[in-house]
Structures are given as C-alpha cells and as structure tokens.
Design a protein around this nucleic acid. Structure first.
Length: 481
DNA sequence: ATAGGGTTAG
C-alpha cells in the first residue's frame, strides 16, 4: 500500500537527476485510500498541499468515513502538515452530512486552537446542514451565537444565514429573522434579493413583489439581479403571462434609464417559455438576443436544448447542440446530461451511450453522478438491470463515487425482476451504502430485508440486521477526534 | 458561502 504512495513522490534518484517529480495525483491517492485498510498510514513524503487535500476530500465526498479518516490521519500523524481552513470546512461539511455532531464541534474547536478559524463560511456550512435536515431554529441559533465561537456577525454573514434558510425552503423563518434584524445589520440590496428569491423559490410571487415594493420604499434600489430573480419567479410559479410582461417592462426600462437586461434575463425567458410549452416563442427570444447583441452563453444553449428535448424533438435539440459546437462554444457536463437524457427519453439508448463517449473522449467532460444516475434510471425502468449494474461498476472504478440517489435508484431497481439473486445484490448495496456513511430510509431497509426473507436468503438478512445494529454507534465512535 | 440563468419529476 505504501509503495503506491511513494511512487508518485519525489524519490531521491529523481531529485539527484534534478528532475521535477510528477505532481501527486489526487485520483490515484483517492483510489488507494478507498482500497486500503483503515489503519494504513500515509507516506510522510508526499508533498501535501491544501489543493491536493481538497481535491482528495472532494473525490471521497461520497465515502464520508474514508474521507474523514484521511483528514484525521493527516491532521494527527503528519508532523509538518497543517490543514488549511478550506480543508477544515470540507471535513466539517462531510462530518455534518454524516450527522457526526461531536466531530463537527471538535473540528471547529481544532480550527480555533490552530487560529485558522472558524470563519463565517464554516458556520454557513453547519447552518446549511441544520436547515436542510429540518432544524431551521438550530441554524438561526448558530448564527445568533457565532460570536461565542470567535466569529463576528456582520451584514455578509446575516445575508448568508438568510440565504441558507431560503435555499432550504424555510422562507417564513428567514423572513422572520430578516424583519427582526434588518435594522441592526443595515440590510442592503443583497439582503432584499435573498428574500425576494426566497419567496420566489416557494412560488409565492405576491410576497416577493411585496418585498420588492418595500425595498424601494426604504430607499434601496433594486438591481438587475433583483429583476432577474423576480422574472424567474414568475416562470417558476407558472405565471407565464406575468413573466412575459415583466420581461417587456425590463426591456422598456433598458431604453429609458438603462438598467440593462443581460444574458441571464434572456436565458430565464428562453427556459421559462420553453418549459411552458411555448417552444416557438422561446426560439424567437433566443434569436432576438443575438440580434440585440447579447451573446447566448453555454447556459442559454443548455436551456434551449433542454426545452427542445422536453417539448419538441430530440433531433432539433441535437441540431442546436451541433450548431453551438460549430460556433465554437464548449459544451459542459450539463449540456451533455440534458442531451443524453433527451436521447434516453426518446428511447435512443445507443445514441445516448454514444453521446456519453463523445462527452468523455472528445468533449473532455467526465460523466457526473447526474449522468450515471439518469442513465441507470432509464435502464432500470425498462428492465435492463445488467446495463444499470454495468454503469454502477464504471462509477465505482472511475472518479465518480455513487451517491445516496445512486443507491436508492439501484436498490429499487433490484425489485423489478423478482429474482432471488437480485435480492442478494440489493442486500450488498444496502450494506455498502451504510459503510459509506449513507443512511437508508426505513422503507428501503425493510424492503430489502423482506425481499431476502421471501427469496430464502435468511442468512444474509440476519447478517445485515446484525451489522446495522452496530453501525450507528461504530460510526460515531470512530471519528470522535 | 453576501444575491440572479442550464441537469429529475408531472
């Protein structure tokens, strides 16, 4: 195990020959960490840098226990390396996702003792975890008590906590906090934009408009972000007509005062109209923006391609894709994902697979978990279990570890054929996901156990039950720092 | 990670 580590390092012969050692490869190190036993020590010779550590933590994101173990080893066993604040923040995020409360706080204490934090960003991460796991009050309290942990509250952190609450759909809670404290922190245009966006996210555009009116009354001038947010809100809540009129109004003001509309405005309208089924109008707006001298971005193309896939034909979507490449745009992962989805949706599995090859070989884009999850969904939907499992294998061996969705998709897919051997696979997947720090829903758990019992796999079922009853306490103990 | 546009699912 250790040899692999040393291989990528500065060996004495390389140094003697005055050759630059190859930079350590995060992918190779991540693979090694995944395959090595938990006690395996890291080579002391690796030239660790925050960038290297961060890219490894990101690669191991969906294997939280291993990621934390790696972080911990480097923190404690490595004499000369001290983790950077950004690595701490990543580790804290991972620990919070694993519900390792004790670990989160000891990491925060450690940051403090090293005098490298915690920063407002650190608290934003923890608050986000609270808010998205149904504990918005804890998120608010964390913000209110930040100063006790050596981190001052300011307008920026106030805006952040509001945004965190809004993005996790706790808009009422955010609005409450906003009204209580907007005086103390002198709310600015960003604060108001966050709240406007919040109401828009839960499709309450009348409330958003109310806040918009209020900000003007209080002497805060809305900017283009405010209007783009509102515009998106109309389309999101299905108010296509209001959205369109708002867009026209924005254009009119552009001529008058000169607030300007930009590529984001146009992208919002192209997407909004298209999703509403108004494909012709969406295309017209796309052409209009070019005439008006606002260059479409990759995101604009992605919006149009998605809309054509959904409401028109995948052939037209492919044409737009080819045209954008011809014009010199570089399609990104989203472009490919949208297009592959379109092809799979149309039953064109072969062309979808080809597009995936194109993306990796010619496009220089690595397939993401969205790519894999979506393709597996389609394969399982029509009973192509082997195809889905093949993709799953590729994920595990490539640089993209399966996430919670992946496991859920696959496990439920194992029930379509009603075969005994599929139940065993489902059981193995369940064990693996727990090992990697994911918490299966009770429903998933019972379904797999029932499946095993009904197909005569009592032994395996019992094994799973035993490992589960231990895993909770094991996880929390292992990473207490 | 102080705010707005593309990836799922009606």
């Amino acid at each position: 195990m250790n040899r692999l580590f040393t291989k990528s390092l500065c060996t004495s012969s390389a140094a003697a020959a005055n050759l630059k050692p190859p930079p350590p490869d995060p992918a190779a190190i991540s693979k090694l960490i995944l395959s090595s036993p938990i006690q395996s020590p890291l080579s002391p010779n690796t030239p660790w840098t925050p960038h290297l550590v961060n890219s490894i933590l990101k690669r191991l994101w969906n294997h939280g226990p291993k990621a934390l173990h790696f972080f911990h080893l480097l923190d404690r066993r490595h004499r000369s390396y001290i983790h950077s604040p950004s690595s701490f923040n990543l580790a804290i995020d991972i620990a919070a996702r694993l519900h390792l409360h004790t670990t989160v706080w000891s990491l925060i204490r450690r940051m403090r003792s090293l005098r490298i934090g915690p920063s407002p960003k650190t608290f934003a991460i923890v608050a986000e975890r609270f808010a998205s796991s149904g504990k918005p009050d804890k998120a608010v309290n964390l913000f209110l008590n930040m100063h006790e942990h050596g981190c001052s509250q300011d307008l920026a952190s106030f805006n952040t906590i509001l945004d965190v609450l809004c993005k996790s759909k706790r808009v009422e809670k955010a609005y409450e906090l906003f009204k209580d404290l907007r005086g103390r922190f002198s709310a600015d245009v960003v604060t108001y934009n966050v709240i406007v966006n919040g109401w828009c996210l839960i499709k309450r555009t009348p409330k958003a408009l109310e806040v918009l009116k209020e900000m003007v009354e209080r002497g805060i001038t809305p900017n283009l972000t405010t209007y783009n947010t509102m515009l998106k809100g109309f389309f999101r809540s299905g108010q296509v007509r209001q959205g369109w009129e708002f867009f026209l109004e924005m254009k009119k003001r552009n001529c008058g005062i000169g607030i300007g509309i930009d590529v984001v405005t146009y992208t919002t309208v192209v997407h909004g109209l298209g999703v509403a089924g108004e494909v012709k109008r969406a295309k017209k707006v796309f052409d209009e923006m070019i005439r008006e001298g606002v260059l479409p971005s990759v995101a604009t193309h992605n919006a149009l391609i998605q809309v054509l896939c959904k409401k028109d034909t995948v052939e037209n979507a492919v044409s737009v894709f080819e045209e954008m490449v011809r014009k010199g745009y570089e399609p990104n992962v989203t472009t490919y994902n949208v297009l592959i989805r379109g092809l799979f949706h149309a039953g064109e599995f072969t062309r979808g697979e080809e597009m995936m090859r194109t993306m990796e070989e010619e496009g220089g884009c690595e397939a993401s978990f969205q790519t894999y999850n979506m393709m597996m969904r389609y394969y399982l939907e029509c009973g192509e279990v082997e195809k889905a499992l093949g993709l799953f294998e590729r994920m595990g061996s490539g640089g993209c570890l399966p996430n919670l969705d992946t496991y859920n998709i696959l496990i439920s897919g194992m029930f379509v054929r009603k075969r005994s051997e599929d139940m065993v696979v489902a059981g193995k997947l369940l064990v693996e996901m727990v090992e990697r720090g994911f918490v299966p829903r009770k429903f998933t758990f019972n379904r797999v156990l029932n499946g095993l019992l009904l197909t005569g796999n009592q032994g395996f079922a019992k094994e799973i039950l035993r490992s589960q009853s231990k895993s909770g306490s094991r996880l929390t103990k292992k990473f207490r720092l």
